[in-house]
Design a binder for these strands. Structure first.
Lengths: 107, 107
DNA sequence: TCGCTCTACCTAGTATTGCTATGTATGAAC
DNA sequence: GTTCATACATAGCAATACTAGGTAGAGCGA
């Protein structure tokens, strides 16, 4: 999967996963890989900065939790984040319909 | 429509439109706006550089044609471009399915 | 014990790419 | 003769995903 394709859409994916259930970064990466059947196999350098960005924006909040090995940072969605996710879902729908409309016309 | 969403997907849209029928930049912009029902109302500073990039990459070729007013630069797709378009269509499909799979799991 | 692997986190720097702003040019309309 | 629509172009900006590298704990096999 090309690098640029994801731009602007990553936030929605992260918000959607975390909205369903609070999770830590590594688990989110695994979840994305599994759900997309390998299509989204994102490097850590992509996901961690994005999570930090979303937290700074107030869409997520995090807490540290001790784990079996190293401590984990658990992210959960905020009220603001839930709102933003709904907006981004709608935007994704409009975007995908737009692309289909352009491609469909070119069949 | 947010700026970043389009990243990486613009090439496919341009290739698809030009593959259907050779066209000049301004007409492509109008076509995108119409087909997407206003969702893709792209500024010229987005489209022209993208067309130049695609031509440099050998996916498009252009010729100047005199028009009613100012001369137009007509782009058409190359064999390489047609191949690239098929690939990018498939990639778009995989991407869209991937997003749906992630979002669907979070319903 | 040493190295390897898996989990788990982090960040500096890079590259790509779409957008803003601005400029040029033609012709029609008012 | 100014404005508008058509039509092209580019320099600089901003956003963001990725590369590459680092830290750290725990288990496993030679």
């Amino acid at each position: 999967m090309n690098a640029e394709l994801l731009k602007g859409h990553l936030d929605l994916l992260l918000l959607a996963i975390i909205a369903e259930r609070p999770a830590h970064g590594y688990a989110i990466i695994a979840c994305l890989r599994e759900r997309s059947a390998g299509a989204f196999d994102l490097p850590e350098g992509t996901v961690y900065p994005a999570l930090h960005r979303l937290e700074r924006a107030g869409l997520l909040q995090s807490r540290w939790a001790p784990g079996a090995g190293r401590s984990r940072r658990i992210y959960e969605i905020t009220a603001l984040g839930a709102e933003a996710m709904q907006e981004r879902r709608a935007t994704w729908g409009a975007f995908a319909r737009g692309v289909q409309a352009v491609l469909g016309g070119a069949l």
